[in-house]
Nucleic acid binder design. Sequence first.
DNA 1: GAATTAATTGAACGTTCGTTTTATTATTGC
DNA 2: GCAATAATAAAACGAACGTTCAATTAATTC
Lengths: 213, 213
Amino acid sequence: MARTTGSDGEKTEAAVREAAVNLIARFGYEAMSMRQLAAEVGVQVAALYRYFPTKEELLFTLMREHMEGLATAWEAARPTDADPAQLLSAYVRNHIAFHIERRHATHVSNMELRSLSPERLTQILRMRTAYEKELRAILRDGAEAGAFSIDDTGLTAMALIQMMTGVIVWFRPGERLSIAEVTATYLSMTMRLVGATSAGEERDVHEHAQLRA
Amino acid sequence: MARTTGSDGEKTEAAVREAAVNLIARFGYEAMSMRQLAAEVGVQVAALYRYFPTKEELLFTLMREHMEGLATAWEAARPTDADPAQLLSAYVRNHIAFHIERRHATHVSNMELRSLSPERLTQILRMRTAYEKELRAILRDGAEAGAFSIDDTGLTAMALIQMMTGVIVWFRPGERLSIAEVTATYLSMTMRLVGATSAGEERDVHEHAQLRA
DNA sequence: GAATTAATTGAACGTTCGTTTTATTATTGC
DNA sequence: GCAATAATAAAACGAACGTTCAATTAATTC
């Protein structure tokens, strides 16, 4: 046989992407074979190479689109004319929502960086740094405005990102906590961590979180 | 040639361990080949199999000893008759010191879990859970005693561990910050995050960290 | 100093890997 | 309905993989 009835390039490519994210998240990039991926999609190995010239290019595509999606989501979620606490709150909400929604893709983007060639690694890291820079700016502006009490802006930003992204390690949808509860608690922890003093939505969030304590 | 002059089983095994930790941390377990490891040690491939029956057993040994070391370090560092803030402070100090000191081994233990067989994975996770349980107990006791203000003990413990362990992702010895400075800032962030109210050593640490702000 | 044990080499095993090539069939445009 | 093109199958490539085995030499024991 050759071309199969009802075959469609776009559908196949989308199926390859989705299967690849799941397999790489579960077994790791090196451990996933192109044969395994093809079998998961329900296609022969050679068909994969019609859409992605190499295995690494497939990985890179998944990562790049994940980072682009993160940047796009933040652009859409970022409030205009907001005080530091509201900005930080929006950043935390967006970060947690995005990462919980795309647990597997986040896993891939965080764990498989070393499988990229130096040039591609640089490209992904540049996107990541740009995203983290937004948080540092929020923290710096808030500290200068007296809304936050922060020892070291850069270190605090890294600590917050590690803390928030860590959600995907243990969070499983439908278990003890809902996404809203997790987000509320993380918001509360974040605001305390940065020593937020303002009376914005942060206090509401904090009081809401206390309801479950 | 066969046995080489000055060859010593103990030294070779130690060299294999060390080289394996470094190579796996840098390239990943799947990407590291036994030939690459042998070349790094300066030995032929077959010699590795005198010390570790399989590649996975080597990985498991590295992980198990890392987790045992972490438990041992905490047992030695845990204060007797201390208030919650002092206990938490000791936990944070020990965790950060241990993980910075063994960055590569921590990377291996955190990133390569999926390469273990189910039984071995369970064994490592059991050790990890036991260690995390200590932190949850500290947080729970502190919250009950009124020393901390915590929304969700389990969630806070996970957030703290992710935040602290994340140090190894960005920290490089000899750069902008010293280990002492990083530890002080993380202690400060931790105490604020858990809403510590007591006037133990936590205030000293916090004031000290403020000196650099 | 001969016998035994410890440590290692060198070569090979079968398997799996990412990738390529060629042929074949389904779909699309005219 | 016929040409052009898109999508896939089937088979094969050489290279690299984890692992094993037999042979060989250094160190140790008596």
